[in-house]
Design a protein around this nucleic acid. Structure first.
Lengths: 143, 143
DNA sequence: TTATTTTGTTTGTACATACAACTATATATT
DNA sequence: AATATATAGTTGTATGTACAAACAAAATAA
């Protein structure tokens, strides 16, 4: 069998490739917010729950604690969030400047969605997204 | 709407998450080869065509030229491949030591496949993989 | 034949992310 | 109350990958 077939029959390879393609699109769409997409999503999580802990952020975003720490650092440096240490917890809040970004981020989110929907079809895009979510859950629970 | 819904409705987020989960599985399965999966795939591409150029490697693996250069460096340092410069091309060949890895890599590839098939179902896993390949092609051609 | 453009590769730099080891706080056990 | 264990966050370090700019060779135009 030819190599290309091996590759396209490997979930690691195809998932990885798709992820890079979509990541590039997402970076472009979020550029006007001045943030890369994951940072924007972290902010969204704080809009959703002011005073959220880092642990919760990690759970929602499916990122490692150390990654969260690093993201918090950067967003704090940009003066978009701040944290209040409460015992061993570090609770995260948006600053005024952070709040001002909410509209923009939401717009980016919509633009990204429209961008791939235009190519894949709205229904197909949504179904794919849902499918990937379910598959991830399966893979994470079953081991 | 709650944030978690926004996230699982975003292809960037779900594709990225899946990719990280599968990447971790793949790294574990390829560990016995001493290579991370993408390096192993590069080697497979050289098995498939001794004397392949870096450009071709990039096209097959869907990686940037600069990334290929870096991978070549590492695999050369491990004495698994070598290159022959031919004009402006750099042609890649496997060394003896590289050839010895072929069996092992193939086994890792199979193990990885079995591992996620056991969770997702063989048919479902294959269909998903094919779907991701098609979606990636769509997204890359349509812009 | 020289000058220009194109093509393939490399180098510097940057970023998202992870893991392992560590620190600090909180809870449970003796 | 003192000690042990669990939990939350941080720090050092590593890795895969990309982009932009540089470089070198080849192809084309002058």
């Amino acid at each position: 069998m030819m190599l290309e077939n091996y590759l396209k029959e490997c979930l690691y390879f195809t998932a990885n490739r798709l992820s890079r393609i979509v990541a590039k699109m997402a970076e472009e769409e979020f550029r006007i917010s001045g943030l890369s997409p994951t940072y924007a999503y972290l902010l969204m999580a704080v809009y959703d729950k002011e005073g959220i802990s880092q642990k919760e952020l990690g759970e929602i975003l499916h990122l490692n604690p150390s990654t969260i720490t690093r993201f918090i650092e950067k967003l704090t440096a940009k003066n978009l969030i701040y944290n209040k240490v409460e015992g061993r917890l570090s609770l995260i809040y948006t600053t005024e400047k952070g709040k001002e970004l909410e509209e923009t981020i939401y717009k980016c989110w919509m633009n990204l969605r429209r961008r791939y929907s235009d190519i894949l079809g709205e229904k197909e895009g949504d179904e794919l997204t849902l499918l990937l979510d379910q598959v991830s859950n399966q893979l994470e629970n079953k081991e």
